[in-house]
Design a protein around this nucleic acid. Structure first.
Lengths: 240, 240
DNA sequence: AATTGACCAGTTTTGCATTTTTGGTCATAT
DNA sequence: ATATGACCAAAAATGCAAAACTGGTCAATT
């Protein structure tokens, strides 16, 4: 009973994995600005030129690393939701999300768009987050969930999106901050937040687990389609 | 049945109020760095020299403005808690806090230590927040509440402080972000957070309202004592 | 006694030339 | 095919002097 792979994980060669791992280590320690391509090559134990056999540029490497982390996170998250009988409920979705964050530390960086780590990369006008229109996606997400009956329809999607943002931020912060020894109280806090989200956002009649799963499935499919289209458009633009 | 004034509001002359108001307006619009003393004088309709008849320096003005806002906020907050039969319960304390934030917009700036508004002021090594040791105070606060039985004693005060921080941040964000027309859903969200705080942090036996009020009263008294001591020490240092 | 605004010293900003670093390439080697 | 690292152009960091700004003062004024 394995979780279905709605978003295929990126095809990664042994070499690319090596480079990704080295980059992730250095990124965590020194951040984007202070991590040079030469550093990455040295950390990975290969030559600088070798990196350019696999990646078009430093930014291409960074972005594919972020995408790699996101896809891994998504697949694991959805797997956890599928395995959980109540996984489609909003509160539980967040609970499962938190469980999976630990396995992909870069996810916290992505979610928080961490300035300390991403540095000047965030200032580039065509950066990953601008290109993927993080803001717009969120509204769509909420609107779809409302249309499907998983979120009360009398709430302004903007407000709901903001609340989800805030809660995500808080959970990521907790996941980063609270040491493992403190798990029991953390767990209680997380459950509290999850409960709150469930009560505040779910319609009275309650959204059943299947609805949540269906929406998530659809969302991922759309996201993948958009993503591929954007990548192709990007590639096409670079050729001209 | 008026609320007792545990922290006396600052003694402010007509002129100082005029300057405070002008400063607050400009601070909100342009922030600390781009608000010059000349600007403030112009906005207040007085001369630059007149400002120095009331304040030792620009920073003295800013700090006394922040203190003014905090004292006003504290007095109003405590008043709201006193007037509320359940005001001593942690969740309700937060609810009451939120109600009062609207009346003192600068409070949001203070709570978030807003870099966009406070700018370089925050970088000064002897800034308001460093001087008043915001971090230390918070731990004391939690420890006192735990000692008094208002917060479960099996939780690490550091974790609890962090959670309260996060919740405060979230509530302030909501208060700042959500437009007035959206009050109904906002209200529900706030109640959700308040409930969560109550459930997660209050001991099973429950802290009664009086306990909360007593702790708050004590805290304010201590804060005032510390504050005056710090101010005197500061003044003494500047004479030498 | 209260207020003003020209004035000043110290700081910040700007413009620019020089040096250093870094992303990316490619002739050469394996 | 795959990989290397010396090499280069572009970008970033550094140093510095001139110009502009700003916090704070104080002799003159009301």
């Amino acid at each position: 009973m394995t979780a279905p792979n709605l978003l295929a994980t990126q095809n990664i060669s042994e070499r690319e994995k090596l480079i990704f791992d080295a980059t992730e280590r250095l990124l965590g320690k020194f951040g984007y600005d202070k991590t040079t391509v030469a550093d990455i090559a040295k950390e990975a134990g290969i030559s600088k030129g070798a990196i350019y056999l696999h990646f078009k540029s430093k930014d291409d490497l960074i972005e594919r690393l972020l995408i790699h982390a996101m896809l891994g996170f998504s697949a694991n998250w959805f797997g956890a939701i599928e395995a959980d009988p109540q996984g489609g409920l909003i509160g539980n979705m967040y609970l499962n999300m938190l469980k999976v964050i630990d396995q992909t530390p870069l996810m916290a960086v992505i979610m928080r768009q961490d300035g300390a780590i991403l540095g000047n990369y965030l200032k580039k006008k065509d950066n990953f987050f601008v290109k993927n229109q993080r803001q717009g996606m969120r509204h769509e997400f909420v609107a779809m969930m409302q249309a499907a009956g998983a979120i009360r329809q009398d709430l302004d999607p903007k407000v709901v999106a903001h609340i989800m943002d805030m809660i995500s931020f808080g959970m990521v912060t907790i996941a980063e901050f609270v040491p493992t020894e403190q798990i029991p109280p953390t767990d209680e806090v997380i459950k509290g937040i999850a409960d709150f989200m469930h009560r505040a956002l779910t319609p009275e009649q309650g959204a059943d687990s299947e609805t949540g799963k269906r929406i998530l499935r659809q969302l991922y499919a759309e996201a993948q389609k958009d993503f591929l289209a954007a990548q192709q458009a990007d590639a096409a633009q670079k050729e001209s």
